[in-house]
């Protein structure tokens, strides 16, 4: 796409992004949060997922402003363009990874993002308890779903994001799925129609 070549993710990563030396601080901080949540909710992993999603949503609302400020991008015209922006530029400038976009449905409203590496879950293994609940219920990187949902909401796209597969659970790859529900209309000031 000609627009994404203008905002080349790689170039931006090299020149424009302030980096910290140690991504492990980031990984360990996230791990600390997940384990604290598990303790707070008494190992009710559904609740933990929801809380991570909520936190991600709040992060996403702020992240989008920084994304727009760094790339100067305008609103995308189609959902396909959005997918390209997210995978080529978004993930690159924030997490330094480049997921692949696959599995488009016929109507062009749902696609999958396959992450080949996940800095949130570097060196993480889920412990096996007596009933394997953690493997069944916990999506470790659920915060990413919230981030995408929050960020896209701020640019008037109502999407659902959920995990399909996760390497931590023993699957072969980590896969997220995004579905566009609708375009949100801009709000009208009181008194206008």
């Amino acid at each position: 796409m000609s627009k994404t070549t203008r905002y080349s993710g790689d170039e931006m990563w090299k020149n424009n992004v302030e980096k910290i030396q140690n991504s492990e601080l980031f990984t360990l901080t996230y791990g600390s949060v997940v384990s604290q949540l598990c303790r707070d909710f008494n190992n009710n992993y559904q609740e933990v997922n929801q809380q991570l999603d909520r936190m991600g949503y709040n992060i996403g609302m702020r992240l989008i402003e920084e994304f727009l400020a760094k790339t100067g991008a305008q609103r995308c015209q189609t959902f396909k363009e959005t997918a390209e922006m997210i995978s080529k530029v978004g993930f690159k400038i924030f997490l330094n990874i480049q997921p692949t976009v696959t599995n488009w449905t016929q109507d062009g409203k749902t696609f999958s993002l396959v992450l080949n590496e996940n800095p949130l879950a570097d060196f993480v293994e889920l412990p096996m308890g007596p009933d394997n609940r953690i493997c069944r219920d916990l999506w470790y990187s659920q915060v990413l779903c919230g981030v995408l949902r929050g960020a896209l909401q701020m640019v008037q796209l109502d999407v659902d994001v959920w995990f399909v597969k996760d390497v931590l659970r023993g699957d072969d790859q980590t896969e997220l799925r995004l579905r566009l529900n609708k375009f949100l209309k801009d709000e009208v000031p009181a008194g206008e129609d």
């Binding site: 302030e18 980096k19 910290i20 991504s23 949060v33 702020r62 997490l95 800095p119």
Partner: peptide, 15 residues
């Protein structure tokens, strides 16, 4: 160790 952007860490920490 790979690098990561400062803003990702700062957003996570904010939250």
């Amino acid at each position: 160790v790979p690098e990561i952007s400062l803003s990702s860490f700062s957003f996570l920490f904010c939250e």
